[in-house]
Design a binder for these strands. Structure first.
Lengths: 214, 214
DNA sequence: CCGCGCCTCCCCCGCGCGGGGGATTGAGAA
DNA sequence: TTCTCAATCCCCCGCGCGGGGGAGGCGCGG
């Protein structure tokens, strides 16, 4: 067997901390190495204790979980972070997830489930509560609002407009005159109601007409 | 108690179908109402049987799971779909998820976990295998934005560069001179090695320095 | 047949912008 | 203290680009 998983618990409610610690200590391969009552203290504890994973409450005095997670990400990008919250799931989860946390669970989670979640996260996977996952899925699905008023040729030009090429260079690539490209570009800008090339490309990407190849 | 959950199993391997059916029938609140050996047959079965959820294998002859899921989505958007696959997780999962399935599990899943997944999905939640979830998360937080060579002020200017505002207008907004903004912009372009404002913004978005607010 | 949309090409104008210089201040590191 | 660097401001130049105009050919549907 490998070393036990070192866990730091950060929550402003002592009863929650104690409860979590008790549950987790029942597992032989889990080791609660520290507790903290807010983000500021939790951050210090995390940086000195170097746990494998930090269970962090979202709402706390002094420094909230998101702020702490952000700071922790910068200081120690490898440390896993699992966020603990109530049961509300609003759009702020995306801000949270964009911080780069690996786990997101609710406080009413089943102990066995939490243990599994911790293992998953420490193993480099990610664990989100299904309700949160649903929201995330909904975000990547919304997909293709097919607002295509552009002709095929204009779509092609639009693709090229997302490149560093000047209209003259695009014209060479397409084997037409620069004036033709500029003419298409003008029509595109007008149709999309965008003031310039940069905004047109940005707008196109937002409405999924273009995909960022990267 | 409510009625049992009606399940349709679609897999080209009889042994998998039988195995799944056997495991699921052990649960009193689960009811396997049908089996099918490929997407085409599965689609017909789904539309006639109206199960609560369809467990669908990804790779099948005649019609694969993704095609079936897509067709099923159009015919009966409320029916839940859980995709079953091997253990490979490549970028095609995003095509799959964009179809709008609610579940994505591997065939080597623990029976108890599968049961929980089915319940979660039928309850309107979503269930993804942690490895898949990790990939999805990586998509919305492609994470580790280490490439921050920009100063805070430059980041601020970069944000504004993603707007239709001219440098002069940005300067007014920030309460500084146009020359200052242009100076920052020049430094940004040089640091990012981008030829112009449009490419800088695009590039910034690709490396997630900027997020498309939409 | 005739109109209409699409693609092609052309001209002019003015300004936003990229790229090249440089200067000053203040904060923080060496 | 000295030196670096972020942040501020200034000048000049040339070109890419947005916006305005117009025109001809071609295919397609009424």
């Amino acid at each position: 067997m490998t070393d036990p998983i070192r866990i730091l618990i950060v929550d402003d409610h002592a009863v929650v901390r104690k409860g979590l610690a008790m549950v987790l200590r029942l597992e032989p391969d889990l080791d609660v190495v520290g507790e903290a009552e807010n983000g500021r203290v939790g951050l210090e504890a995390a940086l000195s204790l170097h746990p494998d994973i930090a269970l962090v409450d979202l709402v706390m005095p002094e420094m909230d979980g998101q702020t702490m997670a952000l700071a922790l990400r910068k200081s120690d990008p490898k440390m896993k972070i699992m966020m603990l919250t109530g049961t509300e799931v609003d759009d702020r989860v995306f801000d949270l997830l964009s911080v780069g946390i690996e786990g997101y669970v609710f406080k009413n989670i089943e102990p066995a489930e939490l243990v599994r979640a911790i293992h998953a996260v420490v193993n480099g996977e990610a664990y989100l509560h299904p309700a949160v996952m649903k929201k995330v899925l909904g975000k990547i699905q919304p997909q293709s609002a097919p607002f295509v008023l552009l002709t095929p040729r204009e779509m092609e030009i639009l693709d090229w407009m997302a490149t560093p090429n000047t209209y003259k260079q695009i014209a060479v690539q397409l084997g037409v005159s620069e004036e033709t490209v500029r003419s298409h570009a003008k029509n595109i800008l007008e149709k999309m109601k965008q003031p310039n090339r940069a905004q047109a490309v940005l707008s196109a990407m937002k409405m999924k007409l273009l995909k960022l190849n990267g």
